[in-house]
Structure formats: structure tokens, C-alpha cells
Nucleic acid binder design. Structure first.
Length: 376
RNA sequence: GUGGAUGUAGCUCAGUCGGUUAGAGCGUCGGAUUGUGGUUCCGAAGGUCGAGGGUUCGAGCCCUUUUUUCCACC
């Protein structure tokens, strides 16, 4: 998997690059829509690709392991053939579920014992079993199995958690090197840098992952409750250590402003449920600010959803119609808003890339940050 | 015309034996959501209890007049 930096921004640490996978080349910085169950909720793959212009999507190891289960994925010939998504894919390992499903699991040295949120059945996830599962799913980029601790974790817990994550990482790479892809295309394994909000732990964690000479590196455990400024500081600490010539992936982030700030600090890849989840709840992100389409003020506004938008829904449908669909709880409301939002996120990172290449990222970013937080 | 029922938040309705600041759902307004347990969650505003009079320490509730809407019968 080759990563080439085309341009470094002169005044910031932002970079424009190309990441080559066996399913296509990804232009960075990039946003990756989340498709937990091998679907970006509510949107046809065709529209994810052609309208939102997504270049890579996520799927989730924990969720696909439970449903439909690995025998089905393997019989289908991997997640690409099963889902018909032909572009690059990335699987999260289930490490985030260690955090988000904390009430349903027990952590041990060997791994994480989950009680299924679907039927209560018990499942042991180990670094080895997760790599095996990710091999079976067959994504182009596999994520290491880690513990994602909460943002307010005390230092003692954060340090212990980091050590566990590092031991697990070693076991992940050991299994990775002993196994082969199942479907004839290359699979990268990205380690995840943890360390909560403690700069020295973060720095040490970043130093530790260098030993694996990975195709890319992820920053995890952020946007989980800590103040935004602390998150930015942690990104700076970690990126000061990570190699320049590998892609950097900030997991689970974030708002449009978060993404621009992280790009400025040298991050190349992002994923977040925000555009789809918030879209389902009526929040639209635009270059001029945020719209809550449920508000009565849009009831008779027949202007396009987003005149500057590039997805067909942006100019085909009016705000009044989307407001109506949203108020009625119609499925189409979630579909339109989700497609609009991921199209906007992709347009935003696309513009960021253009401005990095043009050399004026910094002033462009400053004006965008002003506009993006406005409430319309 | 006669008899009966009815009127409580924007809408549809609860409201115990007459007892503290009259409630719910929906709607409205606002907020939350960050490697997806979310058609979700949280909060706020909104009342001369149709109107007048009376009984009572105290009335949404009891009495009375009037009025609204609905039903049945002439």
C-alpha cells in the first residue's frame, strides 16, 4: 500500500496525498462514511460513490461478526462482493465497542468478553480472533484491536489501558504476519495510538507504534468526552512523532470544524457517524452553517436544500419538502439528509485538498471555520 | 321547540371524596449526538379550567343563569 504526498502546505502541517489500495486510489485528506453493517445507513452504494463521491467506506468487525456472521461473509467471497461496494474499505476492529458497549463486556488480558447486545450470547474477542475476523471480512485496511478508554480516564487507568493496548497490538501484528489475505487483494493493518489526554502517554504510544513500520497509523481515543482543545493538543503531540510518509487516521472525528483543524495539524483520514446520525435527526451541515430542518421556519421555504451542494438531492428538493418529510418521520427524510451530509463532508475535505495544493489552505480554513458553526 | 350530552394548553384528551404550584400525548421552540445499541435522548414555552353569579375555610369538580358544539325526538 503506497502513500505519496503531493503537496505540503507551507504555513501549516496540512498535506495532500494519494493512498493506493487494490480497490483504487484515495485522495487525501479524506472523509470515510461509516457503514457499520456494510451499509451507509439509508444510502445506495451508487449514491455514496457517485453523488457523495466517497472514495472509501467503513464497516465494523464486531457488528458484522454478530450479524450476518463470518460463515456468510466468507461464503459471499468477502465484504466487497457481499455488499457490492467495489471501492476501498476499512474495518474498525471492535475496539470502540469496548468503549460504547462498556455495559456489555468484561476486559481481560486475553481479550474482551462481550455479551451480544442483540441476544445476550457471549463472545470472546482477542487480538488474534479479531485479525482472523478482519481477514475474513476482507477490508483493504484493518484496524488493530485496542481498548478505547473514556476521555476523562484518570492517569493511572490510562497508563494501564495503554499498556494493554500495546500488548494487544503486538499480538495483532504477530497474527497479521502469520496470516494471508483470503480474496487476493492486499490488506493493511493500522495500529492505533492511545494515551487519553496525557501528552507523555500519547508521545510514548506514538513512539511505540513506529516499530511495526505500518502502512498507516491511527489516533484513537479522542472525541470521547475530553474538551476539544485537548483533542487538538493530543493530535499535535502524536503527529510530531508519527512518520511524515505514512497516512494518519483520526478515528471517529468529527464536526466539520474538527476535521479542518485536524487537517491543519497533519491528519489525512477521518470517519464519523455525525453526518449520517445527525442527518437522520434533521441536522444538515452546509458551507454556510448548520440547519435544523425540523424547525418551523423552513415550513414554507421552497429554496433548494443546499444551492452549492453537488449531490442531486441538494438542488432537486426544497427545504420545505425535506422539513415536511422530517416532521412526518418519513424514511426519505433520513435518506436525503444523510446523502446531503456525507456529500457535504466529502466536498469539504475535497476543498481542503484543493486549497492545500493551491497553497492557501490556512486563510481558506479560517474563513470556513467562521461560517461552519453558524446556525441558520 | 323539548330532552340529553359537551366545553380544561395550538390539537386530542385525563383530572379520584371539593384540598398544596391543574397534567399527558401530539404540535411548537431550543439543545444534545464524534472508530453507529438512536424513526433516539434532554429541556423550555404555552392555562382567567366557555362566561357571569352563588355555596364553602377552600371550587376544574357542587348549585344557578347564560352561552358553544353535538346527538335524539317533535
Amino acid at each position: 500500500m503506497r502513500f505519496t504526498i503531493r503537496q505540503n502546505d507551507l504555513r501549516t502541517k496540512a498535506r495532500a496525498g494519494e493512498l493506493e489500495t487494490d480497490h483504487g486510489t484515495i485522495l487525501t485528506p479524506i472523509f470515510m462514511p461509516v457503514g457499520t453493517a456494510a451499509t451507509v445507513k439509508g444510502i445506495f452504494h451508487r449514491d455514496v460513490r457517485d453523488e457523495a463521491r466517497a472514495q472509501i467506506i467503513l464497516a465494523n468487525t464486531y457488528h458484522l461478526y454478530l450479524r450476518p456472521g463470518m460463515p456468510i461473509i466468507e461464503a459471499a467471497g468477502g465484504v466487497h462482493r457481499f455488499s457490492t461496494w467495489e471501492g476501498p474499505m476499512l474495518t474498525d476492529s471492535g475496539g470502540f465497542q469496548v468503549f460504547s458497549l462498556a455495559a456489555c463486556r468484561k476486559l481481560k488480558e486475553e481479550g474482551c468478553h462481550f455479551r451480544s447486545h442483540i441476544d445476550g450470547s457471549k463472545h470472546l474477542f482477542t487480538p488474534e480472533s479479531v485479525i482472523d475476523t478482519e481477514r475474513t471480512i476482507g477490508a483493504d485496511i484493518m484496524m488493530a484491536f485496542d481498548e478505547c478508554p473514556p476521555g476523562d480516564a484518570p492517569r493511572e487507568y490510562a497508563a494501564k489501558s495503554l499498556e494493554l493496548t500495546q500488548r494487544w497490538l503486538d499480538r495483532c501484528f504477530d497474527r497479521y504476519h502469520r496470516t494471508q489475505p483470503k480474496y487476493g487483494h492486499y490488506q493493511a493493518l493500522f495500529p492505533i495510538v492511545q494515551g487519553c489526554t496525557y501528552p507523555d502517554l500519547r508521545s510514548r504510544a506514538a513512539e511505540n507504534v513506529l516499530q511495526y513500520d505500518a502502512d498507516g497509523y491511527a489516533i484513537g481515543g479522542l472525541a470521547v468526552g475530553e474538551p476539544t482543545e485537548v483533542m487538538y493538543e493530543m493530535i499535535e503531540v502524536v503527529n510530531a512523532v508519527l512518520p511524515e510518509n505514512r497516512p494518519r487516521y483520526l478515528m471517529g472525528v468529527g464536526t466539520p470544524v474538527n476535521i479542518l483543524e485536524a487537517i491543519e495539524r497533519g491528519v489525512d483520514m477521518f470517519d464519523c457517524v455525525m453526518p449520517t446520525r445527525n442527518g437522520r435527526n434533521g441536522q444538515l451541515f452546509t458551507a454556510e452553517g448548520v440547519i435544523n430542518i425540523r424547525n418551523k421556519k423552513w415550513e414554507a421555504d421552497f429554496s433548494p436544500i443546499d444551492p452549492e451542494g453537488t449531490a442531486f438531492v441538494d438542488t432537486l428538493y426544497s427545504k420545505a419538502y425535506l422539513h415536511h418529510l422530517c416532521v412526518c418521520g418519513e424514511m426519505l427524510a433520513a435518506q436525503i439528509a444523510s446523502l446531503h451530509n456525507i456529500a457535504f463532508y466529502l466536498r469539504l475535505v475535497g476543498m481542503a485538498r484543493e486549497h492545500i495544493l493551491a497553497g492557501d489552505f490556512k486563510p481558506w480554513k479560517e474563513t470556513m471555520v467562521q461560517k461552519l458553526t453558524r446556525r441558520l
